[in-house]
Simulated assay, not measured.
Amino acid sequence: MPDHKLDDIDRRIVQALQADGRMSIQDLAGKVGLSPSPCARRVRLLEEAGVIKGYVAVVDQDKLGLPVSVFASIKLERQREEELDRFAAIVARWPEVADCYLMTGPRDYLLRIIVSDLAAYERFLKDKLTRLDNVASIESSFALGQVKRSFSVPVELGKGV
């Protein structure tokens, strides 16, 4: 599957599983117009090709007592490959960091950090982020509210491999 494009049935399978990853093969097959065996085979091939990377439960961070999302823009002193890789490897281990993106523009990384309150972010900042070598500056922005959060990729817009 890695060397050919997704067809319409593959796309429908991915869309359906993004909406409900716990859907049974029977239900999925009915939704995409296949019988269960070929549907299961296609799902397995999509998983093996890495199109489907895994399955997760979407959790409400507020109900877990973690209502604060902070976006931190990080500028490094040096942008050599080994420095970028080192920073990425360290922050990937921190549970507070929900998302980390290597960026273009004036900042090197954008992190989304999830914490319980302002004091928890201050501890994270002082105990972890500011102690990293090679961090030149940190700019933090606090989310006031969430307008949209999607866990789906717009399958219909992709070219697919």
Rank of each mutant, 00 (worst) to 15 (best):
D62A: 14
R93N: 05
A120W: 00
E122M: 14
A119D: 06
R112D: 02
E122N: 15
I74D: 07
I74C: 11
M103T: 09
S69W: 06
I113D: 05
R78Q: 09
S69F: 06
S116K: 14
V91A: 04
L110M: 14
K128W: 10
A98K: 04
E81M: 14
A119R: 08
I113V: 08
G65V: 06
K128Y: 07
E96M: 08
V58T: 02
A88Q: 01
R80L: 12
L125F: 07
G65K: 10
K126C: 12
I113S: 05
F124E: 02
L84R: 01
K53S: 09
L111S: 08
M103S: 11
I52S: 13
Y121S: 12
P67T: 02
V70Y: 00
I52L: 14
L110C: 15
A98E: 04
R107I: 05
D133C: 10
K126S: 07
F124Q: 01
A92G: 06
A119L: 07
S73V: 11
K75G: 08
G105D: 04
F71C: 12
R112F: 01
I74E: 09
P106I: 13
G65W: 02
D60W: 04
Y121F: 13
I52A: 12
K53Q: 13
D127P: 10
I114P: 04
W94V: 06
L132G: 02
